[in-house]
Amino acid sequence: MRGGRTSLAREGATLPLIAVILALIAVWYVGAVALNAPQAREQLAEGAGFRDLAAATWSMTRPVLPAPHQIAVELARSLFTHPITSPRSLVYHAWVTVSAALAGLGFALALGLLLAIGIVHVRLLDRSLMPWVIASQTVPVLAIAPMVVVVLGNLGITGLLPKAAIAGYLAFFPITVGMVKGLRAPDPLQLDLMRTYDARAMQVFSLLRFPASLGFLFPSLRIAVTLALVGAIVAELPTGAQAGLGARLLAGSYYGQTVQIWAALFMAAAMSMLGLAAVSLIETLAARRRGGRL
C-alpha cells in the first residue's frame, strides 16, 4: 500500500493517537447507551433517571453493543481464570487459530520463494504463470474456504491441515508477488557489475538478488500475516469447528453472546498485531546488520 508508512504516521503520533482512541471509547459508551436503551427500558422501573438507564445499558448480559469495560472484563476472565489448555480459555482458542495461520504462513513462504525464484529465472514461467498470480489478487480467493474444508473433510483430513491450507493459499500470492519484485529490484548496473566479475548464477542470487529482495519481503509478509489469520478464522466457520477464534465468533452469534463475540474479535485483532510486531522485530534485526536500513 502506498499510504502504508508515511512520515506523518511516524512523527510524534503517540499523543494524537491516544486522543483519538479516547474519543473513540467515549463515542462507544454513548453508542452503547443509544443502541441498548430500548432493551434496557423494558427492565427499568417507570421514572428511572438517565443515570440508571446508562448504568443499565452498560451492564447487560446480552447487549446490542457491549460497553468497552464489559469486553475488557470478559477478555480478562477468559484469558486468566482458566488454565490455557482448557477449551474455556481464550488463549487455547487463539492458539488453535494462530497455529493454523503460522503453518499456512510457513507453506506460503516456502512455496512463494520457490516460485518467485522460478519466475525470475525462467522466462516461460514469468510469461505464463505470473499473470495468473497477479490476477488472483483481484479475486476473492477466500470464497473457496468452505469447499476446501468440506472436501478435505471427506478425505478424512480435518483439524489443522485444512485451515493451514487455506491460510497458506491466501498468504502465498502477496509473498510471491513481493518476492518477484524484490528479486528483480537490482538495477542493471548492479547486475552488470556481477557480470564483470564473471559471477556464477548462484553468486548473483546469494550476493545480490536475495539481499536486495528483503526490503520487499517484509511489506508483503505484513499483508500475508493478516491474510493467513483471516484465512484460518474463516476456515473454522463451515464445519462449525469446536475450537478456534472463528468457532468462538460463530458460537457467539448462534447464542447471541455479543460480549463473547467482541472478546474473540479483540483477541483476533491482538493476534494480528502480535504477528505484525513479530514481522517488524525480525525486520529490525535484519536491518540492524545493514546499518539500520533494509
Binding site: 494524537p16 493517537l17 483519538v20 505484513r222 455479543t258 474479535l265 483476533a268 494480528s272
Partner: peptide
C-alpha cells in the same frame, strides 16, 4: 487529527475485520 487517525487507520486495516460479520 491526521497524526491520530493515520496510525489507527493503518492498524485497523491490518486486522481481520471480516470477524465483525456476526455483529
Amino acid at each position: 487529527l491526521k497524526r491520530g487517525f493515520l496510525p489507527m487507520g493503518n492498524m485497523i486495516s491490518a486486522m481481520p475485520i471480516v470477524g465483525i460479520a456476526p455483529i
